[in-house]
Structure formats: structure tokens, C-alpha cells
Design a protein around this nucleic acid. Structure first.
Lengths: 213, 213
DNA sequence: GTTGCCATACCGACCGTTTAGTATCGAGTG
DNA sequence: CACTCGATACTAAACGGTCGGTATGGCAAC
């Protein structure tokens, strides 16, 4: 708790504040999180936050931007040097890990849903993130089609949209009912189903999932 | 706006209040909706609301229960006298209609997500709804398996979970980006993909979706 | 008159934001 | 080296407003 080499004072820096803020926002939502709560968890007073950020919305926007960039980097790194079908499997794994992580989870789902009809700037940020995610998936599918690995008559946009739906819906159900909803198994089932369906006609057909008798 | 034959006064009855309340909650969230706002939209004052409901949470719980029951009835009716595969198509259609309706939409997604870590009673209600929804789907899949219509070696629970994921995720993306996200097409793509995958080995294989060249 | 339904007025708590003031540092100056 | 100056990083306190909730009273119907 002493010096961390980054700040002159004992308090939290601007970067630390966005970390703590997004954590609070992800747990209690934007409207359910008071500036005082963030300040308390950061070990500073309310004034310190208003020294770094113009408003509560400004703090939220900064925190969201940080997290979105982090998530996208993570997804991209998981796909490095991987074939299209392997990439599609890995992305689901990264999303599941993200949902199970200690600090990061829920922020996307919670703030995305809350911002609908209540916070236009954040909504726009989230909309951009989802569009980029779908485009990223679509390009992977297209690459698979171009290389003959995946069926070329499939609608890559629709496949990407369905994939994104499965991820968001599975995360939501997992947050709602973590003890009864098996996140990884659901995503694996979906991805296997999708890859089976995308296999070019004539290729060998595998049963659902791996061979785990 | 005069007498509607139900109430002695010009105000709204208990049932009308839950309708208006769920509408507000669905748009602005629970924490983003004040009692005064609901009262204003209902054409009454706060006192009227506290005459019918003990607290804001009580009002929310009553409104949520009403809506959940309504939705479940709608889904069940859509499946009357339908074969399993047809039921699975119809449920997706009902969910898409629900998402596009004028008054009802968003309440499930919004309140479900918001209640995570903030409102245990509502969370429990939502959890029950999702469990029943998945169980309903699973039973349809099992019925299809028993009748030989669907592959018997598929994991019915996992299929139901993936289906539910797709519905929730597609609705969420649609609310987030209604102009760019095509809800119906995404759900149709998913359901076709799933049914293709569930077709028993040896059965005729159709291409994705209908023939819309 | 009693009862059900609702309006009015109000309370205490809390929220986002502002302001005034303070402590701590680095750079510049002699 | 000491010393000033000006940022920077905060604290403490308060303000105006809104919120959920309550107490009270009145009007209409039976």
C-alpha cells in the first residue's frame, strides 16, 4: 500500500481509478454505483475523482474504452497463427475465460444492456465493439471459405451474428445462474454444431464435440 | 381517458400500474426509474402507487411476475399441435416478435442483467424463468429424439442451453443496434444450423435457411 | 358512517458536483 | 545548496436536487 512507483502520493492514479471504477460498474451497474463508492474502494475521496475526470459519465467512458481495447487485443492474440476453425474455437474459450475472471467480468454485458436508452455515448462505444467483433468473426469465416475449409455457400455475416449471439447469451445465463449453467459446455456445443454445419459437403462428419465417451 | 369501467376514480388500477411500471423499468432500468416517473406516466401520484404496493421493489416484483407469466403462456401456445422441429422454429419467431413489440420488449433482458448482484428476489425470478425455458426446449428436443425426428445422440440439455443463448444474445444485439443487426435472419440462421445438425444420420440435408436465391 | 382510493405535503437520506484550501513534488534561479 | 514558484494531487465540506417512503386528510360509494 506504500509507493507503487507510479504515483507521487499514496492514492490511486488515474489509471487505477478506471480499473476500480469499471469493477464497481460491472458489479452494480452505472446507476447503482455512486462516486463515493468508487472513491471508498480506491482509498481516496470524491474530490480526487473529480480531479481526474470531469464527471461520472466521463469516468465511465474512459473506463469502458480501456476495457474494450483490452478485450479486443486478447481476442486478436488468441487467433494468431491459427487456422479459421481453430480461431473460432479459441475465441469462444477466450470469452469463457473472460466471463470467469475475477475482476473483469460482466462489464460488457452489464453496461451494454444498461446503456440502452439511457446513455447514448456508451451505447455507441458498445455498438462499435459488437460491430467490430462480428466483422472479425465474419472475416475469419470468409478466410475459411476462401481456403476451402468451410462451406462457401454459407452466409458469413449471419454466421458471425449467430456466433456473437451465442457468446453474449451464454455469458448472460452464466452470470444469472453460475451454479446451474455450464458456460464452457454450452459454447463448445454451439461451436461444434456450427463447424459441423460449415463443413463442406462430402467432408467427413464428426459427432457433436470431441470423442469423450 | 375518462372512465374505463374498471375504477371508480379516473386513475389507473393495480393491474395498469404494473403494465406502466414494467414499461418504464424496461426502458430505463430499475434504478433509473423513479416512483414519480411511473406515477406521472400513469396519471396518478406517488400516493396511489404506495396504496397498491408496499415498496418500489414490491411493484417491480409484481410487474415482473405478470410479464413472465404472459411470455411463457405465449411460448406454450405457439407450440400447440406442432412437431418438435416446427416448435423450435416457432419459439424463435415468438421471441423475435416479442423483441419488436411496442410495449413489452427489453424487460427481460434489462431487468435480468440489472438484477445480477443487485436484486436477489428478482434475480431468483429470472433464474426460474430461464430454467423453465431451457427445460421446455429440452423436452421438445427429447420428444423429437423419441420420435426419431432428431438425432438421439445429441445432448438435449446443451442444445437447449445453446438455443437460449442464441435468443438472448440476438435480442441483446438487436436492442443495441436495431438498424444494423437483423434479428430474424440471425435467429433463422441459428435454428436452421441447429436443426441440420440434429438431423439423424442418413436423412436428406438441406442448405442453410430456405431457398432464397 | 365506514371503507376504499387517492392527492398533498413532507421527511431524511443520498447523490453528483463544486469549491476552497492543503500537501507534495520538480524545475528554475541565485 | 537553499529557495521560490507553479503544477499536480488530493481532502473536507457544503450545495442543490432527487429519491424512496410516510403521514394525513378528503372525496366518492355503499
Amino acid at each position: 500500500m506504500a509507493t507503487d512507483g507510479r504515483t507521487r502520493r499514496n492514492g490511486a492514479g488515474r489509471r487505477d481509478l478506471t480499473e476500480i471504477a469499471i469493477n464497481c460498474f460491472a458489479r452494480h451497474g452505472y446507476q447503482g454505483t455512486s462516486i463515493d463508492r468508487i472513491a471508498r474502494e480506491a482509498g481516496v475521496t470524491k474530490g480526487a475523482i473529480y480531479h481526474h475526470f470531469r464527471s461520472k459519465e466521463d469516468l465511465l467512458a474512459a473506463a469502458v474504452r480501456d476495457r474494450i481495447g483490452e478485450f479486443e487485443t486478447r481476442v486478436q492474440n488468441a487467433c494468431r497463427d491459427a487456422a479459421p476453425d481453430e480461431s473460432l474455437r479459441r475465441i469462444a474459450e477466450v470469452c469463457a475465460e473472460h466471463a470467469r475472471s475475477e475482476d473483469r467480468p460482466r462489464f460488457a454485458i452489464k453496461l451494454m444492456v444498461e446503456s440502452i436508452e439511457t446513455n447514448a455515448p456508451v451505447l455507441e462505444e458498445m455498438r462499435g465493439m459488437m460491430r467490430r467483433f462480428r466483422a472479425f468473426l465474419r472475416n475469419i469465416v470468409r478466410a475459411g471459405q476462401d481456403s476451402g475449409l468451410l462451406r462457401s455457400d454459407a452466409d458469413a455475416d449471419a454466421v458471425a451474428a449467430a456466433y456473437t449471439s451465442a457468446v453474449i447469451g451464454a455469458e448472460t445465463q452464466f452470470y444469472l445462474d453460475p451454479k446451474r449453467f455450464s458456460l464452457e459446455h454450452t459454447l463448445e456445443t454451439f461451436v461444434s454444431q456450427m463447424l459441423d454445419n460449415l463443413r463442406p459437403a462430402g467432408a467427413a462428419q464428426t459427432l457433436q464435440g470431441r470423442s469423450d465417451p
